[in-house]
């Protein structure tokens, strides 16, 4: 009787779990439906008709392209900065035992653990105090700060698997520190870094709260969307952009998942 209970899933649990997953996914599916609606004045359901014409309209909108371009550039540079800083931090924390490593972990996680609005307003008032004008780089500064943690989390998990004796074995066989990094450490943490980088890119690409404080008059794609949400002017274009954003962020997440699934899991806490 006991083993029965172990192997058979209770029906109520199955239903609750299924409903929960549906709750998570149905709203996203709705976005896809609305991208094809013919209605352009309201959010009417069901859509009175379906059309592809909004894709063409969106394609020809320079402001969308501009915002997309800025987002991609910000995300790329932030990812590179986060990769360097996150990897260094992870290497230091996992390869050596030193006083204060808990503090370092906390420091890396803090920009994510504290509400984004605090990070945003802190940076903004610091820019004001230091009289730094808003620019591309002020956005990157904010984004890289909270992207470090995703790279760090992925790299720390993998560094733990590159046992200390592998590094010693490499040095024992004649490789100095740099050769060991190139021939042993990098090949072993490469996929974790790639995964971390993709998540960092997705995180930066989507960020809006900190960005509103550090962007000034510039519009990233999320800022563009936020304006459309507060004052809807171009509902059909917003629908199409929303759908594309969902698709675009799914790709790096899936890629990161496949890169890290045999072994450590991608860390979900970094957002």
């Amino acid at each position: 009787m006991r083993s029965d209970k172990q192997s058979r899933t209770p029906m109520g649990l199955k239903i609750a779990a299924g409903l929960g997953l549906a709750f998570l996914h149905l709203p996203l599916l709705l976005i896809f439906l609305y991208a094809f609606t013919t209605e352009d004045k309201s959010y009417q359901f069901p859509p009175p008709g379906l059309t592809l014409k909004w894709f063409a309209v969106t394609w020809n909108r320079p402001d969308v392209w501009e915002a997309l371009g800025l987002s991609v550039r910000v995300a790329s540079i932030s990812t590179v900065v986060a990769l360097v800083l996150g990897t260094l931090c992870a290497a230091a924390v996992s390869q050596t035992r030193f006083f204060g490593r808990e503090t370092i972990s906390l420091l890396v996680i803090l920009p994510i653990a504290l509400p984004g609005i605090i990070t945003g307003i802190s940076l903004r008032s610091a820019f004001n105090l230091a009289e730094i004008p808003f620019s591309f780089w002020t956005i990157v500064l904010g984004h890289a700060t909270f992207c470090v943690v995703v790279v760090y989390n992925n790299a720390v998990a993998r560094f733990r698997r590159v046992s200390g004796s592998l590094i010693e074995a490499s040095m024992d066989l004649g490789a100095d520190g740099f050769q060991t990094f190139r021939h042993v450490i990098l090949p072993n943490i490469g996929t974790a870094l790639l995964a971390g980088g993709m998540l960092a890119f997705a995180l930066s690409f989507d960020e809006v709260i900190v960005t509103t404080f550090t962007a000034g008059q510039q519009a990233t794609l999320p800022i563009w969307m936020l304006e459309e949400l507060v004052r809807p002017r171009q509902r059909p274009v917003t629908n199409v952009v929303a759908m594309v954003v969902v698709l675009v962020t799914f790709l790096p997440i899936l890629a990161a998942y496949y890169l890290t699934r045999d072994g450590d899991q991608i860390s979900g806490q970094g957002k």
């Binding site: 998540l199 997705a202 999320p222 969307m225 979900g268 957002k271």
Partner: peptide
């Protein structure tokens, strides 16, 4: 993971 990481604004 997918809903977690998909766009907040969306």
């Amino acid at each position: 993971m997918l809903p977690l990481w998909s766009s907040y604004l969306v």
